[in-house]
Design a protein around this nucleic acid. Structure first.
Ligand code: FES
Ligand code: FES
Lengths: 141, 141
DNA sequence: AATTAAAATGCTTTCCACAGCCTGTAAAGA
DNA sequence: TCTTTACAGGCTGTGGAAAGCATTTTAATT
């Protein structure tokens, strides 16, 4: 459902939000901590920089940091940049033009669930997630 | 979320259930009606035959037909054969061992939605779908 | 028995997400 | 100014899904 790139992006963003200070966090540190390929992660984060969720800085002590407050970054924003939002408008059976006027045999039940998932990603911010992590200490990253 | 093979399998099964009589339906007819590659569909349906959702018959007037009553074939059965059920037990962020004891940052909200989707596929049979199609005439396949 | 229809199956090709590597470029510090 | 650090971005390789092709097997019809 989410691409590998998108999963990595979300994990990285959570890590960055959790360790959010004024200085930049290097991509190699994130890759090491989350056990990801440095090269692959670099490209994913580049996208997020272009999407204006992250700021980057080159040179010594460079790295990335959040471009805005953690409460203003929703999961759906990350998903939109890495994967797009086709998932939330496409037919689950791969047919063209998914809509109530032109439904496939399982359109109505699927559109319902799909909408709930979309709402879930829209209503969850990085701030919410970091607070959860601090509350429940047992969360893995 | 569902592989192309799985989507095609579901569409084909619905078509077969809708036209279910005593005689066999040829795969080439199904492929033509649903606008699918005959070769690809052949292999998918072979899997369903092995999975005992379909019976096949070779030679002239051969083809496939449901191996059991339409009300005994659930969408989840088709999904399980074509894609497996990893989707319903794996972590959405790709982490190992998804469970309540070992949750990722969005495990609780995701496990909830994921369970609902699973229930949806478990509780929908081909009979339900065919009835819907007959009721609402505007359904596309 | 020969022909024909249709599924079963193996082999090959195509495509794309994923991943790795290398070079370019910006910035800091000596 | 030179060296080092770290992001930016291009190029290439790989594995698995998807798709196409060809041959074999089964069964009905003539
Ligand atoms: S038409 Fe199939 S999900 Fe909407
Ligand atoms: S651990 Fe991530 S969804 Fe369960």
């Amino acid at each position: 459902m989410l691409s590998t790139a998108c999963k990595d992006a979300i994990r990285a963003m959570i890590y960055i939000a959790k360790n959010n200070k004024d200085d930049f966090i290097s991509i190699s540190e994130i890759a090491k901590e989350l056990n990801l390929s440095f090269y692959f992660l670099s490209k994913i984060l580049q996208k997020l920089v272009k999407g204006e969720l992250l700021k980057s800085y080159r040179g010594p002590n460079g790295g990335v940091k959040l471009a805005k407050s953690a409460e203003d970054i929703r999961l759906i924003d990350i998903i939109e940049i890495t994967d797009g939002t086709k998932f939330f408008s496409e037919c689950i059976l791969g047919l063209e033009k998914c809509s109530d006027n032109n439904p496939c045999p399982i359109h109505y039940m699927w559109a319902d669930k799909r909408g709930e998932i979309q709402k879930m990603f829209e209503s969850t911010t990085l701030k919410d997630i970091v607070e959860d992590i601090n509350k429940l200490q047992c969360i893995k990253l």
